[in-house]
């Protein structure tokens, strides 16, 4: 995984928020489609709940992976911010730290999006 430390791209920064956005979309669209086509799908609401639960776990795993890579990129926190020197090393560490914080935010957000899954009893009639 040495290449991760070398990478000079912004995409790693957006991984966790992208996963959060996709998870949000999947949860809401899946429930909306399921409830609109209730009769047409041979699937109970419980199955739906477990399915989305599985997707949530997967999303959290990707975010944790992103956080771990970011932590690594940040040098495991050996140096404290601000990484504001005009060097490649500081740029990498800054990006790593920012990614780590974004991953934390996304983790919490995915958890918050999941809360209704525990309380929704059925589709709105």
């Amino acid at each position: 995984m040495r290449w991760i430390k070398e990478i000079e791209t912004f995409w790693t920064l957006f991984t966790a928020p992208t996963v959060w956005a996709l998870h949000f979309l999947v949860c809401y669209v899946a429930v909306a489609v399921y409830c609109a086509k209730q009769g047409a799908l041979a699937m109970s609401f419980e199955t739906m709940r477990w399915l989305l639960g599985g997707i949530t776990v997967a999303a959290l795993a990707v975010i944790v992976l992103s956080a771990w890579l970011a932590w690594r990129q940040w040098g495991f926190g050996t140096e404290v911010p601000p990484h504001d020197a005009p060097t490649q090393d500081d740029r990498r560490k800054f990006q790593g730290f920012a990614t780590l914080l974004l991953s934390g935010l996304s983790f919490v957000s995915v958890l918050y999006v999941t809360v209704p899954l525990f309380f929704i009893g059925a589709c709105q009639s």
Partner: peptide, 16 residues
């Protein structure tokens, strides 16, 4: 958030 979401169905009883 959890408390508010838990409370919601009682106020809006649209669940079967």
């Amino acid at each position: 958030l959890a408390y508010a979401v838990w409370l919601m169905p009682q106020i809006r009883p649209f669940m079967p």
